[in-house]
Amino acid sequence: MTQSADTLLQVSDLTLHYRTRRGTARAVDGVSFDLRRNEALVVLGESGSGKSSLAKALMRLLPRNIERFSGQVMLGDMDIMQLGDEAFRKQVQWNRMALVMQAAMNALNPVVRVGEQVAEPLRVHRGWSKDRAMERVAETFRKVGVSTDFLQRYPFELSGGMRQRVVLAMALVTEPDVVILDEPTSALDVLTQASIMNVLKRIKREEGTSFILITHDVATSSELADRVALMYAGQIVEISDARDFFHYPAHPYSQMLMDSVPRLHQAEAPGYIPGEPPDLIDPPTGCRFADRCPSRFSKCSQDPPAFSPDERRRVRCWLHEDEVARGS
């Protein structure tokens, strides 16, 4: 991909394989994308496609059973994959990038007041005084729409929607450049989801933050996305501008996914994608979607590289090989 001055994060060939009893699980298998300043990239994909693993790989929050962890992640002009763990924590984790983990709202410490929990990264990692930290926390609470009366409350005293805002505050309190959100609204109601998405839109607009939003829900993705990356079996199969992705999806999987989205005022029933994604242990050689793909042809037994039919788009499918040839 072309690197512009605006590029904040550039990920190349990121790989995270787990060691399991049955063999190597290729959860993240050569993922590349870039993220511009003040951009929201949505990572879509079905369960098990590797979305959370991608988030953990970027934040280096890894389990023990790692078989392979490699690739390049440029944050500005620093390759953060080359940093030692200590330097990574100091320079990246509590500073320039933050992650709201999947189901984090249920993982708050039940016996610590939420204000203190949100202040922790400032107190522990930046050594701020209590007053200074709490002032910043209060400010962050206001941004995410939590009354400062709640600073002194315990997690169980808050509704799910409020707890989700608290974990969001925890990610924002260090004013990072990149915030990664793993399924931040999936467990919430429609109205609560909408108000959390409103908060994210406002923060993106007012603070210039960049987001990587992970979700399996296309409707949610459309509430924030500038660009969409669709994952399938550990790989990004398409990455496109949101407008193109939603209206002219290029990869057969993207097309079927978009067809399966229920629409409120549409007379025809949505379609669906028969079959199931492949096992990440010994995935098929060749195109990983081939089993379920209605457009499969002879070439698909070879692994398709990512083709760029135009410079804003990358599609991992042999059908787009010709377009590239014609285009260039």
């Binding site: 109205l191 989801q193 909408a194 459309s222 509430e223 996305a225 500038d226 501008d241």
Partner: peptide, 25 residues
């Protein structure tokens, strides 16, 4: 009406506007 205003058919423009959501819970 609020429930329906909180959801919209998928469109890239959804990201541009905040939704009308009744306050509170």
């Amino acid at each position: 009406q609020s429930l329906l205003a909180a959801i919209a058919d998928v469109d890239a423009d959804n990201a541009l506007e905040e939704r009308d959501v009744p306050s509170g819970e």
